[in-house]
């Protein structure tokens, strides 16, 4: 059913820390690896080893250059489905293949009902849905619904593949509807925010902003003097080292 639930018991989602993300793409590749064998299987690629490789991925990691001059910085920016509270992608679906679960708020596509009309991708402001050219249906982040409730895998793995794979702990998973959950506290503490709030979709996933810079450009102090170049005392040993350095530098 494409009618949205009035409210969901839980609001499961991700909190992504843009301060610690290093843009290693581990979350994206881990997502692709899990989901090409899981609920969304297959997650097809077209021409994977040719001149124009492309295909369906559920997570994309951008890199932006933000700010000007000496104070500019690189921000790595993972982008996936935000499991919105009022997702337009679900409302526009003509078949009922798209739905939002009333118990945990996860937005899913039933791959057996989707006709591949792509209208949901037009309705989503975040580019979260990708058409699988080989499978003929829309694919999107499932929040690893086949991992988080899966009692056949170790408890430590019952989190989304992207969260499990992140080497810097930049991705957090939990119930954002519960004010006392770890993720909610993290969002409150770090000033987590919504992407494109003007879209009106009320995304559940939150992003933590990069922390303020702590370096010469922000602390108001003069930069530390550069270390003076090493100079020898002119001894025979010193000249020998200089000679060796010259030879070895060739």
């Amino acid at each position: 059913m494409t009618a949205l639930p009035h409210s969901t018991v839980k609001k499961l989602g991700l909190v992504i820390d843009l301060d610690t993300c290093v843009g290693c793409q581990a979350c994206a590749t881990s997502c692709k690896e899990w989901n090409t064998g899981g609920y969304s299987a297959p997650l097809s690629d077209i021409d994977p080893y040719g001149k124009d490789p492309h295909g369906a991925w559920l997570n994309r990691v951008h890199a932006y250059d933000v700010g000007e001059g000496a104070s500019s910085r690189t921000v790595h920016f993972p982008r996936s489905c935000l499991h919105c509270e009022t997702p337009a992608c679900v409302i526009v679906c003509p078949t009922g293949a798209s739905y939002k679960r009333a118990d945990d708020g996860i937005v899913l596509v039933n791959p057996d009902m989707c006709i591949g009309c792509k209208l949901c991708s037009w309705a989503c402001p975040y580019g979260a849905r990708e058409y699988d050219p080989a499978d003929g249906v829309m694919k999107k982040c499932t929040l690893c619904v086949d991992r988080i409730y899966n009692e056949h895998i170790p408890e430590v793995d019952r989190i989304p593949a992207c969260v499990r794979a992140c080497p810097t702990g930049a991705r957090h998973f939990g119930d954002l509807g519960d004010a006392n959950s770890d993720v909610s506290k993290l969002v409150a503490e770090r000033g987590g925010y919504d992407l494109m709030p003007e879209s009106g979709m009320k995304p559940v996933n939150k992003y933590l902003p990069p922390r303020a810079r702590r370096d010469a450009t922000t602390c108001g102090k003069a930069p530390a003097p550069e270390a003076a170049p090493m100079t020898g005392d002119g001894s025979a040993l010193d000249r020998l080292f200089a000679f060796a350095d010259k030879i070895l530098s060739r």
């Binding site: 059913m1 494409t2 009618a3 679900v90 526009v92 679906c93 078949t95 009922g96």
Partner: peptide, 9 residues
């Protein structure tokens, strides 16, 4: 299947 969701779509 596209005839089913006239309530919202």
């Amino acid at each position: 299947r596209a005839f089913s969701q006239w309530r919202t779509s």
